[in-house]
């Protein structure tokens, strides 16, 4: 996983609550296992009914085309567990999402892919959103995970909280599977213990 320490980019405001993963990354009906996640991101929202680009969609506006930070409302990433809704962010170099809250599975998927999910209080989020709207893409914001601060036009540096473990995982780009593989001995001894105590859990055979 790509480590994350600091990210400087234009920030775009997505002023809605409950943006779901169907919206972020719709089912693309491709015939190929390899999907172009750069194109997937907000595929429908980016387009009008006739398939042409919708100039009113925020990420289509010239000043936000290269946005690398999103600022949004409550419950971002609700719905389907599809990880493509995070891969599509990475493919577009969006490495930070600031929200009032995230759906549980989406937040996990962010952490697995080096995307920093920042949760702010409603007041902080509204303040940051006002600054992002006022900046209107003219100047970038910097999100620094080492100092846990957001800086940019229109105000003072803004601190943010993140669980220490999540922070270290992102900073070091730790592979989640690699972390757990260090515990294979414990896993094996759990299996041995349960095979004796509750053997039905350790076997799943067709009895026919």
């Amino acid at each position: 996983m790509q480590p994350f320490s600091s990210h400087t980019a234009v920030a775009a405001p997505l002023l809605r609550d409950d943006i779901n993963t169907d919206q972020i990354a719709p089912v693309m009906h491709g015939r190929d296992l390899k999907e172009d996640y750069k194109v997937t991101l907000f595929y429908r929202a980016r387009r009008r009914d006739d398939g042409s680009e919708d100039p009113d969609f925020i990420l289509n506006k010239p000043q936000f085309r290269d946005a690398g930070i999103l600022v949004t409302g409550n419950n971002f990433g609700a719905g389907s567990s599809r990880e493509s809704a995070v891969w599509a962010m990475v493919a577009n170099n969006i490495r930070v999402i600031v929200a009032k809250s995230f759906a549980d599975i989406y937040r996990e998927n962010c952490l697995q892919n080096g995307v920093l999910p920042i949760v702010l209080t409603a007041q902080e989020a509204d303040d940051l959103t006002a600054r992002v709207v006022a900046a209107n893409g003219a100047a970038p914001f910097t999100v620094d995970l080492v100092s846990q601060r957001i800086s940019g036009p229109g105000g003072a540096e803004m601190p943010f909280d993140i669980a220490a473990a999540d922070r270290i995982r992102l900073l070091e780009g730790l592979d989640d599977i690699g972390l757990t593989l260090k515990h294979m001995n414990e896993i094996a001894s759990w299996e041995q213990r349960i095979a004796a105590a509750q053997p039905w859990l350790q076997t799943a055979k067709d009895s026919r």
């Binding site: 599975i105 998927n109 896993i187």
Partner: peptide
């Protein structure tokens, strides 16, 4: 798949997960 907890109807504790979490379970069973 996010609807994993359907099987909670039988008293199982289920977790819908993403793709990397799925791979994690394949490799480690946890």
């Amino acid at each position: 798949d996010s609807h994993a907890s359907t099987v909670g109807g039988l008293g199982a504790l289920a977790f819908g997960c993403g793709t990397t979490e799925m791979t994690h379970v394949l490799a480690t069973q946890v």
